[in-house]
C-alpha cells in the first residue's frame, strides 16, 4: 500500500516580467499541501516564503494570475497537473 504518494498534487508555477525578476525564478514545480486548493491558498503559501515573495504577492502592486492559460481569480480551483502563472497586468499592443 502507498497511502500517501497518489494523493500528492503537483503543479507548475510560472512567473513573468517584473515578478520573474523580483522572485529570481521563471518557473518551478511545487506540491500543494492538503489545505491548498485555490489560487488564494497558493498565494498565501508562496507569501509565507517571505522577502520578495511576500512583497510581490501581497497585492500592493497589482498581480494577475492564469490557470492552464486562462485568466483566473482568487477562488479559482487548482489541482494536480495545473499550470499556474503569476504576472503583472499586461502591457502589449
Amino acid at each position: 500500500m502507498l497511502p500517501v504518494a497518489h494523493n500528492i498534487q503537483m503543479v507548475t508555477l510560472i512567473y513573468f516580467a517584473r515578478l520573474r525578476e523580483s522572485l529570481g525564478t521563471g518557473s518551478e514545480q511545487v506540491a500543494l499541501p492538503a489545505g491548498v486548493r485555490d489560487l488564494d491558498g497558493l498565494r498565501a503559501m508562496l507569501m509565507a516564503r517571505g522577502g520578495a515573495w511576500a512583497s510581490e504577492l501581497a497585492g500592493t502592486k497589482p498581480v494577475r494570475a492564469a490557470v492552464n492559460q486562462d485568466m483566473a481569480q482568487g477562488d479559482t480551483r487548482i489541482g494536480d497537473g495545473d499550470e499556474i502563472a503569476f504576472f503583472p497586468p499586461v502591457t502589449g499592443g
Binding site: F16, A17, R18, F87, P88, V90, T91, G92, G93
Partner: peptide, 20 residues
C-alpha cells in the same frame, strides 16, 4: 488588456517595466 505581453523599456534613468 487581455493578451499576456509585457514591455520593458530602456531609458536614460535605467530599465523599467511599463505599467498598465
Amino acid at each position: 488588456t487581455r493578451a499576456p505581453f509585457w514591455k520593458k523599456e530602456q531609458t536614460p534613468q535605467g530599465a523599467r517595466w511599463v505599467e498598465s
